[in-house]
Design a protein around this nucleic acid. Structure first.
Lengths: 330, 330
DNA sequence: CTATAATATGCAATCGATTTGACGACTTGT
DNA sequence: ACAAGTCGTCAAATCGATTGCATATTATAG
């Protein structure tokens, strides 16, 4: 491998001159400059990043942990993160949860041991178990889709507001007897959306009645079962907010099978804007996350923390936007 | 940051002893060993990876390029790669195509400049433009989903065989007038599957008639249009092989709208086993790629190349497996 | 009780790029 | 023509871990 001394020899100068030419940290005469650059090109020289990192006490690297990279949520986050990071001259070290047996702790230990300049943790599901940060972890950390009580910064989707807007939209589209098919109660994503929905209904003088709530497991199957239960409990239901698009798809399937026309007799609203929502037999109205922007924003946050800025807010909420499709058309 | 000399001082030994304890490359008496380990724990020492990389002339890192990380194909590849890589003591440096404006060349330049021990390139779509490998790139390279004429190793899905098995399956399920809705002709994934399908039909004394072939763009919309065209050209069509699940979903939608019952009157077969295929109103029969295994396999390939093994075969085909669902039930 | 082997530990050079202080070669003003 | 000042370049120290060689220590044999 060609070293800086080789380039120096080729150009007939000292290594420090080569370094100065490349970094521009000292003025170099145009003639030597040209000669050095020519030598660099001829020898195809690339500085050894390990030597640079050692000398500069910084790997110019950001660690990215994703609880599951094959989840769209995480995969699209990373795109935003990468854009910002690379622009700022940092590269991405990758560690997914899967390979650590879903163990954030071990992934963090690993990232810590790599002496990174910053770490971003992205979670596909907003669980609530605490994150075991390694002791001695001294670099800035930003989390995506998980609130961290320990005082780290986090970027979160505004689920409460999403639920609220879901309620408003269903009301505006003419529904009055509105139900909710959610996920497990310990999942903030689900419970927050439910709370938002309830508030929207209350503002309209309505209540989110308990018999109109079914809590499943985010799956398509729980949409099927959930819709059946809801109709049993109240056959007059005319609008359902589902915690995600899988559930909404199941609900639409079930409604169609039971002879209820969507959206004429029943409005169904999903969440997440999965790829299939757009062309489901009844195209599904849903909420789209600005996933790349969330990644981007968290990387910008991390960069300011790395620069030493202290930011007042610890949690940063990002709104989702409603995507109107046929399943809630008036 | 605590250095090896700090640990040495704390334990009352020399740095080299600490190094030997940690690496186990030389025998150390149990007593000193304990003392050193205790010091390491007390000071929370982690070796500086840059210094190690510099000294050992290896970053213990593998570069991963994904043409688009938010594509399931690539995202699941990376999981397999990571599993194998980390087990062998390597970590993953990540570069996605998106952030280089889809430019493989610049991503490769970047990965090259990081002095990696090996590089894996995963492509979401099997295009045919040549890959601009940087000159002086001296580390092993393995590509996924892209044949590379330049003599690099590649791991590819066996599309020809998939198409062949698609044909066999449609025939077995009772169809005889079989059509194909594909992607653009320059895409090997599409054309190979078509060739495989044609061969299966020929073996049965049938031909893949040109009027029964529609080439679209992989989208759901081209499934809708494609199916209409095919039915116009030959109303008696009773089986359609679609190049992917989006197209198959569109074809099923269109068939349902035109009053053709799937699968009773028309069998529809997809490819890729996307998440929605399982619970589409008519669950879609499809082919599932062993995506993680492909990642795993390519990483294993890369590791042997890094060890200096020379492998006879350059292209390694991985079969997909048929997933039988309702859309092709007899 | 010395000689020899075996074992454990330390010293110092090394990996490759960066940077500080120093120095030589010019230019400019008086 | 000389002092003062620029400008460009270089030599050498530095970052932190590893390792070949040397040495100190202990065990074993003669």
């Amino acid at each position: 491998m060609v070293r800086i001394v080789d380039v120096a020899a080729e150009a007939g100068v000292s290594p420090s001159t080569v370094s100065h030419v490349l970094s521009g940290k000292r003025p170099i005469s145009e003639a030597t400059r040209e000669r050095v650059l020519e030598a660099v090109r001829r020898l195809n020289y690339v500085p050894n990043p390990a030597a640079q990192a050692l000398r500069e006490r910084s790997a110019s690297a950001i660690g990215f942990y994703g609880s599951d990279i094959s989840e769209t949520f995480v995969a699209r986050n990373i795109r935003g993160v990468e854009r910002v990071a690379r622009h700022a001259g940092y590269h991405l070290l990758f560690a997914s949860g899967i390979e650590f047996d879903y163990d954030v702790g071990r992934a963090l230990d690993f990232l810590h041991s790599r002496r990174l300049d910053g770490i971003i943790l992205a979670f596909a599901f907003n669980e609530t178990e605490p994150i075991p940060f390694p002791r001695g972890l001294d670099c800035p950390v930003v989390t995506i889709n998980r609130a961290v009580p320990e005082g780290y910064h986090s970027v979160l989707p505004d689920n409460r507001r999403g639920g609220y807007e879901a309620g408003r939209h269903l009301l505006e589209s003419g529904a009055t007897r509105i139900g909710f098919i959610g996920g497990p109660p310990n999942r903030p994503a689900s419970s927050e959306r439910q709370l938002g929905l309830a508030r929207a209904l209350e503002e309209h003088g309505l209540a989110l009645e308990e018999r109109r709530v079914y809590l499943g497991d985010y799956s398509q199957g729980s949409g099927v079962i959930g819709l059946r239960r809801l109709l049993e409990a109240d056959p007059g239901i005319d609008g359902v907010f589902c915690v995600n698009d899988f559930t909404a798809a199941g609900a639409i399937n079930a409604a169609t099978q039971l002879g209820r026309r969507v959206p004429e007799e029943l409005k169904v609203l999903g969440y997440d804007d999965r790829d299939f929502a757009e062309f489901w037999p009844v195209p599904i109205s849903t909420f789209s996350y600005p996933l790349e922007e969330m990644g981007q924003y968290s990387a910008e946050l991390l960069l300011s923390l790395m620069r030493g800025d202290s930011l007042p807010e610890l949690t940063h909420y990002i709104p989702s936007t409603l995507v109107r499709r046929r399943s809630t058309a008036s």
